[in-house]
Amino acid sequence: MRANSALRREKRAAWWLLAPVVIAFGVFQAVPILLATVQSFEATKVAGGLGVGGARTVFVGIANYRAVLTDGSILEGFFRVFLIGIIQVPVMMIIAVGMALLFDAGIIWGRKYFQTAAFLPHSIPGVIAALVWAGLYLPQISPIVKGLGALGLPVNFLGSGAVLFSVMNIMSWEWIGYNMIILYAALQAIPRDLLESARVEGAGGIRIALSIKLPLIVSALVICLAFSILGALQQFAAPVILSTITTNVGSNFTPNLSVFTLATGNGVQQQASALAMVLAVVSFVLSLLVLRVRDRTGATR
């Protein structure tokens, strides 16, 4: 009886606390998502031969989905994200883990200053970070290209083969520090007595790092990995900015750029919605997978 009324109180409080988010979510997320979903099954047809006879919206089933999923250049964009996922993300994570382990090992003088420096890029807006790197890639003004050239190492960051790596570099630059901080925090949470006993048993610093510390921060690692891959799917600023300075970044460089291209193109707005839905589903499935993996690893904690 008393427990019942307590439960009711709890429920009422829960909904009051949730109300602002539920309302805002409904108006500014759910309704727009619904609109976009409906749109993804529609197309607009003009009439009158030249198009001036008015237009009507028709239901086209999955035609928009078929159109975007059979478009070779859009699929190439997904493939680029896959490449980013298997090249940039691991490299960035290795660097971030390495930095975090070094900081955690306590052998770095001025740790706080270095950590702060590493985090700075994350506070710079993506568009601006891309603009800055664009300047560093442009052979005509980049001190890096000029410097390497003077050393007899001609490089072209904007060549057709290299430009994907240049995009990867911008992403890494923005996120290394962020990941490092998270991983460092996870490392700091490892009970010191555990490490001390390993040390007493004669394990070296590198061995402790690899066989004791790393397994203990798998959970944090998985989270960082997941966000990095999701970030790659939605990568937009870097390719857009680079496309103004090189002819090697097309309008479908990443899936999110394809969404923009379709949304601003002629008569393909609804395909943009369809592709966005695909992106959302892919991201959602990925996130669920990650949560599953994390729960499993978390259980062994």
């Binding site: 997320q29 759910a30 309704v31 976009a36 969404v259 707005q269 966005a276 992106l279 959302a280 669920l288």
Partner: peptide, 21 residues
């Protein structure tokens, strides 16, 4: 679950329907 799904939609897509609202 709904909130997790909402977090997945790219801003490029949400902007236009949000504009309509």
């Amino acid at each position: 679950g709904a909130i997790l799904l909402g977090a997945m939609l790219p801003e490029t897509v949400m902007a236009f329907p949000q504009f309509l609202v």
